[in-house]
């Protein structure tokens, strides 16, 4: 009697949560799969998959991955030293909070700011002029897309690396130095391998979203850069070809599963 009641209460906890899983996790994935087999007229077909495997879409996919790779690489190159130096500062939790603070500013506002900064008469061109290079077209180029994306993602890369560095036992570094390793060797053989989990978590947090940044490509790259995300948005909201959009989404989900598998399960909440 007592036991039955207890498990009833426990099941009561499970009901809303299980409903959420079924409605908003399982059903959407199945629906995307289902829709990928329909063409724009609602006929059952494999045409979308055939279309996806043509050079146009494959090139777009490769392009999208290449941009995501570049964005991840540059974010890592900026974020690792930042995280490393942050751990050496006094009041490091406060500095970390200051790194995170810009992520609370609406992403679109930050992107919009770059419309002004990179504009023809904006700050970037003013600086270029004063150092004698002269004004350049910055907006609507690959450079501006990658720069703005890296800017958006730096905090998401810094945070996991910072946490990994914080967990590193400092006596390991002392030991390496005592045993005669140079600063660079210590970093390469001790510090970096031990913080790899943070680097992986950061790369995962940057790479997957950067495959789907349609708002930055629309505002900053002026439709010059087409990523998987832009294509999905285009098919769902502009051309209304949901089948093709769903097919691209299926491939994006597959890519995502591979990346999550490769970078290991993400550590969270710590």
């Amino acid at each position: 009697m007592m036991k039955a009641m207890k498990s009833n209460v426990r099941n009561a906890y499970l009901i809303p949560y299980a409903l959420w899983i079924i409605l908003f996790v399982v059903a959407p994935i199945l629906l995307i799969l289902y829709y990928s087999f329909f063409d724009i007229e609602g006929k059952w077909t494999f045409e979308n998959y055939e279309k996806f495997l043509t050079p146009i879409y494959l090139k777009m996919t490769l392009n999208s991955f290449w941009y995501a790779f570049l964005i991840t690489l540059f974010s890592l190159l900026v974020a690792y030293p930042t995280a490393y130096l942050l751990t050496k500062t006094k009041h490091k939790q406060l500095w970390l909070l200051l790194i995170i603070l810009p992520t609370w500013v609406n992403l679109l506002l930050k992107v919009y700011a770059f419309l002004g900064i990179f504009g023809t008469f904006g700050l970037a061109n003013a600086i270029l002029k004063t150092i004698g290079i002269g004004a350049k077209q910055i907006l609507f180029t690959d450079f501006s897309f990658i720069f703005v994306s890296v800017y958006i993602f730096i905090p998401f890369m810094v945070l996991p690396i910072f946490n990994a560095l914080e967990e590193l036992n400092p006596s390991l570094i002392d030991a390496a130095r005592d045993l005669g390793a140079s600063a660079w060797t210590t970093f390469r053989r001790v510090v970096f391998p031990l913080t790899l989990s943070g680097v992986k978590a950061g790369c995962q947090a940057v790479f997957i979203p950067s495959l789907s940044l349609f708002m930055i490509t629309r505002l900053i790259a002026g439709n010059r850069v087409i990523t998987l995300g832009t294509a999905i948005e285009e098919h769902f909201l502009v051309t209304q070809d949901w089948g093709m959009g769903a097919t691209i989404a299926v491939f994006l989900m597959l890519a995502m599963a591979v990346i999550v598998g490769m970078t290991g399960s993400r550590k969270r909440g710590k």
Binding site: I208, S212, F214, L228, G229, A249, M256
Partner: peptide
């Protein structure tokens, strides 16, 4: 959490 926003958006739109 790991899904890109466009996928969440598109699948919810269908839903």
């Amino acid at each position: 959490i790991v899904s890109p926003d466009v996928i969440i958006g598109a699948s919810f739109l269908i839903l």
